[in-house]
Write a protein that binds this DNA or RNA. Sequence first.
RNA 1: GGAGAGAUGGCCGAGUGGUCGAAGGCGCACGCCUGGAAAGUGUGUAACCGCCAAAAGUGGUUCAUGGGUUCGAAUCCCAUUCUCUCCGCCA
Length: 423
Amino acid sequence: MLALQVIRERRQEVIDRLKIKHVDAAELLDQIIRLDDLRRESQQQADELNARSKALAKEIGALFQSGKTEEASRLKEQTGDLKARSREAEAAMEQARRELDTLLVQLPNLPHSSVPPGTTAADNKLVHEEGLIPGLPGTALPHWDLVQRYRIIDFALGTRVTGAGFPVYLGKGARLQRALVNYFLDQALEAGYSEVQPPYLVNAASGFGTGQLPDKDGQMYHIPEDDLYLIPTAEVPVTNLYRDVILNPQDLPIRHVAYSACFRREAGSWGKEVRGLNRLHQFDKVEIVQITRPDHSYAVLEEMREYVAGLLRKLRFPFRIMKLCGADISFASAMTYDMEVYAAAQKRWLEVSSVSNFESFQALRMKLRIRDEAGKMQPAHTLNGSALALPRIVAALLENNQTPGGIRIPEVLVPYTGFDLIS
RNA sequence: GGAGAGAUGGCCGAGUGGUCGAAGGCGCACGCCUGGAAAGUGUGUAACCGCCAAAAGUGGUUCAUGGGUUCGAAUCCCAUUCUCUCCGCCA
């Protein structure tokens, strides 16, 4: 959510910045400002009427207590009209506020001034690339064939039990999952993140706080009976740990890491590019979340990006970092880096992490504030990143490390898997 | 799932119709005291929304949430949510 003050005082700048995200906000902003004017006007009326009612009630009370009942009764007659008018003003104020809120939450976050313009993902800017792309023989197999050959992941079984997009991990495939999760958690712990195990179902207020609701509700699984949502990422429950919280400067930065299963409906995004592990309805992910002072968030974004790059380096992946352009950046984000690894058999770059700074966008939605040294309130900044999402890491790991004798496990993982070869 | 009790400020806790945004305590901040500290002592200590260029000031809202009764509600009534206790069920 954008601050009303920003909308009112820097209307043209907001319009210009949102154009980078291909959103024409001019009309919406005008409606918002008009509703805010209306809200203020109604509030002034209501405040004044309430002040009079309160004064009158006090007077009547005093009269009753001194026994002047008939005088009190006379004053009482005035209250009815006052009350009716105050109710009217309050109702008008409430309605304006509600309408204002529904419009406010439709506005995306402003992209950072360094976000490149662009119309498709092809306009994302390459900011870093490292590692050697392995040359595989012509007999190299994509991961969906490898997992069958070594019987480590079974998509058909998942289809029987649940449906498409819910694979079953078997034997060394299951152990590899567990090893990756533990490795990622341990790495984050070492880097100073504190571990959290969040709920996998969240209420609507949480979905709203991080920006999934109201507009992206079709992407989350919803349980109508209890009005709960399956989390699409641990970002949602972990960031919402701090909903309605006022932090002191010495609490910051807050750094959390959480493993969770993630659930995504992925409505309307199936095609041949999403075979095998490339896109799933349920997958595992380790997520890092930070809450910072506003003036630190971009330094922290770089730090998080470097942390994720370090993981990819240790796992010996060829990878690249893309700075997302206006067309590809998400609704809530001000700046996002995507981390992609090269899957040598598919000959494709696969996104395995997305690291974002939301600035105050989520904090304003969830009333996450900092009371600074001078006692002033300001919204915190929130950031998060995948560190890492498993399925595409597994896909690239299997493809890149295949040999005639089996799939070699990266050295750093061997203490976690307990084996160094899948054969 | 059944029965009962409860929800008050950062925390504990008083408050059953009026002058209560709320006693008292703890915590915290600042001052005094001290060589320094502790103890003692004094003062202060919520958020949100208006008005005002802003500060000061000032009006309003908020005692779980939403409604209701009343001139007036933390206090009475109803609904919802959550917590606790007992019973049932259960990994």
